[in-house]
């Protein structure tokens, strides 16, 4: 008598199992993965780019790449979260490098129910100061701060995401922190 293996619900299945189902083009499994991990690329993109529309674009782009990459997914890899972190960070770095004003006709007509960036900035002077300070950093320094402080990645993993060796990454992080300290704390001390 053949044993029956109940298929776990998408919300409870581990990432690798979901990825196998996504490789077979299972929409429900992909929806579960999106619900589970969408906040991660969105957070990274929001803090690196500082704009709601762009952050959503990056998050969506990263998740669609996950869908396209699913047939080549290897279960012994670093995992979905690490993969999305790497892809989202690289997408943000690309956008920061070729940043230009968005033409008016390219703005989506859908009403964005997220709070406006200006409203968010005006919500607190501290937040505005942090935004301005992060804008003063280089792209890679900003990514180093976002990955280590906000996403709480160990230095070695953050260095892997940025394709750097650990010594170079620590030097980058040190410079980023020094810049932030001078931008955020020295005004207060003065």
């Amino acid at each position: 008598m053949a044993a029956t293996h109940p298929i776990p619900a998408p919300d409870e299945a581990p990432d690798d199992a979901l990825m196998r189902r996504v490789a077979a083009r299972d929409g429900a499994a992909f929806r579960a993965l999106v619900a589970r991990h969408a906040a991660l690329p969105h957070r990274i993109a929001w803090r690196m780019l500082g704009e709601a529309a762009e952050a959503e674009d990056v998050a969506q782009d990263a998740l669609l790449r996950l869908w396209q990459h699913a047939p080549r997914w290897r279960g012994d890899g670093p995992g979905v979260a690490a993969w999305l972190t790497r892809v989202a960070t690289n997408l943000c770095l690309d956008r920061l490098r070729r940043r230009r004003p968005l033409p008016v006709e390219d703005v989506p007509e859908r009403v964005d129910d997220a709070p406006l960036a200006d409203a968010v900035l005006e919500a607190g002077e501290d937040l505005a100061r942090v935004r301005r300070a992060l804008d003063c950093l280089s792209e890679r320094q900003r990514a180093a701060i976002v990955l280590t402080h906000y996403e709480e990645l160990p230095n070695a993993e953050a260095a892997l995401v940025l394709d750097m060796n650990i010594k170079a990454f620590e030097s980058l992080l040190l410079r980023a922190r020094r810049s932030l300290r001078s931008l955020l704390l020295e005004d207060v001390d003065a």
Binding site: W46, A114, D126, R129
Partner: peptide
């Protein structure tokens, strides 16, 4: 100071 930079919900 950095923690003041919060992210809105999707």
């Amino acid at each position: 100071a950095l923690d003041a930079f919060t992210v809105p919900e999707l």
